[in-house]
Nucleic acid binder design. Sequence first.
DNA 1: GTGCACCTTCCCATGATGTCAAGGTCAAGC
DNA 2: GCTTGACCTTGACATCATGGGAAGGTGCAC
Lengths: 138, 138
Amino acid sequence: MNIGEAASASGVTAKMIRHYESIGLIAEAGRTGSGYRTYGPKDLATLSFIRRARDLGFSIAQIRDLLALWQDRDRASADVKRIAAGHIEELTAKMRQLQEMVMTLQHLSAHCQGNDRPDCPILERLASGTGDGGACCD
Amino acid sequence: MNIGEAASASGVTAKMIRHYESIGLIAEAGRTGSGYRTYGPKDLATLSFIRRARDLGFSIAQIRDLLALWQDRDRASADVKRIAAGHIEELTAKMRQLQEMVMTLQHLSAHCQGNDRPDCPILERLASGTGDGGACCD
DNA sequence: GTGCACCTTCCCATGATGTCAAGGTCAAGC
DNA sequence: GCTTGACCTTGACATCATGGGAAGGTGCAC
């Protein structure tokens, strides 16, 4: 199986497969006599694993650990769970940040006329930092 | 005012001030005879504006537009509001993505024993993509 | 005149991915 | 055998905002 087939079968682009190999996330692929990379079912499984982990937002470093645990028959599920818990925390922290931004922006936006005139609480807030920061109408 | 003072006064690092200048986000700063950048109150206000906008998650491109509107006395607040609305949409889209990841992870994690044994629904899900994807216990 | 804090420019790194370019390879058709 | 087109190879560069560091000049206080 060539890299292109492996890519479309796993959902990881050929580019990224080569990249993952170059950073040591996956083992070096076998090669044909002419230098083409070859992939087997086991490699495909690993690539699919990586793609699913990326879809869940895990970083490459975390995936490295997850792969090691996956391939370790004597793993403790507690180790996996700890990685997941850490990741959940990271994600929720980001969500809170975004949530705060959205709340502030919605508040400012609600008070912006959105017409032809220049007056705008959004700009005022950016300019001075003091323009109506608190709750006024909840 | 040197770049260091401008940095601590505005909350934008000296590094970033130089960067913003290099990409044309801010005007080139004045220079002393020996080449040191100098900043006045107006520059400080601009830097603070940028920092607040960054804190609200605006991209450099969006900030470029916001700065232009800010400096345009004939602006229409509708233009500002449109930028903000677009940004709010981006942020909420990201939040939804994160939310989905968190939900999935929490679900999988809840079913992981987290003990010394290797069995783990999190790994199973990453490995096969079929390991209990639906709601089972809500 | 020395030392230290600050400034200058320039280069490299992050993380995950995309794009592009120049060249080699394979398989099919003629 | 030769061409063609799809695929592969490596490598460099871009994104986005930011940080780090090196090598060297400047300002000021002692």
